[in-house]
């Protein structure tokens, strides 16, 4: 547990638009405020469309000056989406930081289309288990799946809030009451349940092993074991050479041949994001063994 001390406590909540990043940070900020602590909460949102990136810095303590957290000083990093979590890992305190992440994977289909050819892959190919070994304290869980089981996929952020609550020095009752203030009245009970599911999960996780179990689904479907696993099936007779896939491919690995048919330059560059398949008006592209799940 991170004791509230002289130095401000830094919590960073990240995710993608629509997941409830702001709700998590609002609850925390309000709770700190009610305990008489000084709070600074700064966030980027509003520009984010569904699927766009959202983050929220929360700093609290007896005295807080800077509104944002310097890199390497985040005490608790809460990620509502796996890739977002990884993007912010360098902000985590390398000595005592805690990383809490949903293994849910939301690919913003068009967010990465301007990447240069040959640049690094967008998504790390390490498994959650590998990532968690690299951080001082790490927990990865399929909160979205758990929320779905609970009956409302939107409560995944509350599950993560439950886990966050175990890392900070506030009482459960205070957490619950603050949470009630921010969720829609009809879902108060549901969110309380989700909150406790999160707390239970982490208790079990701590008891059983250092590293939280990762769902099989995640291991199988999210990442190919190595590059080249994607099969890019192409039906040349159906292709009309509209160029959409070529221009949309984030990896820039497609090309239009002189006879106006698409060809793949290097299958090893393909991450199987499926954008070309989805946007092909002529159904000429089929991706096998995908790495994407929404």
């Amino acid at each position: 547990m991170t004791k509230i001390q002289e130095r401000p406590t830094n919590v960073l909540v990240v995710g993608v638009g629509g997941q409830g990043v702001i709700l998590v940070s609002k609850v925390l900020a309000q709770l700190c405020l009610s305990k008489g602590l000084q709070v600074k909460q700064s966030e980027i949102h509003g520009m984010a469309k569904r699927g766009g990136t959202v983050f929220s810095h929360i700093r609290f303590g007896p005295q807080v000056w800077s509104p944002t957290i310097p890199a390497g000083e985040v005490d608790v990093l809460v990620a509502l989406e796996w890739a977002e979590g990884l993007r912010w890992l360098e902000y985590l305190n390398p000595d005592c930081g805690t990383f809490i992440s949903d293994t849910q994977h939301i690919v913003p289909p068009f967010a990465c289309r301007n990447r240069q050819r040959g640049s690094e892959d967008t998504y790390a190919r390490e498994t959650p288990a590998e990532i968690i070994k690299k951080v001082p304290n790490g927990f990865a869980l399929d909160a979205a799946g758990m929320a779905q089981e609970l009956g409302n996929e939107r409560t995944s952020n509350t599950i993560l809030l439950g886990i966050l609550s175990t890392t900070l020095d506030f009482e459960i009752k205070d957490w619950e009451e603050t949470l009630d203030l921010f969720v829609p009245p009809k879902t108060v009970e549901l969110n309380r349940q989700a909150f406790h599911i999160g707390r239970q999960w982490i208790e079990n996780a701590i008891r059983t092993s250092e590293v939280a179990p990762v769902s099989e689904l995640y291991e199988q479907k999210f990442f190919p074991e190595e590059k080249g696993l994607v099969e890019w099936e192409f039906i040349p007779e159906w292709c009309k050479g509209c160029d959409i896939c070529v221009k949309m491919c984030p990896e820039r690995c497609l090309k239009l041949t002189p006879d106006q048919k698409v060809e793949i330059l290097d299958i090893n560059d393909c991450t199987g994001c499926r954008i070309c398949e989805w946007l092909c008006p002529d159904f000429a592209i089929n991706i096998r063994k995908p790495v994407f799940i929404s």
Binding site: C239, K240, C242, P281, D282, F283
Partner: peptide, 14 residues
């Protein structure tokens, strides 16, 4: 019946 009769790039296919 494929390829369909739509023009190249027509959104109807999507």
């Amino acid at each position: 019946l494929m390829p369909h009769f739509l023009c190249p790039g027509c959104g109807h296919g999507i």
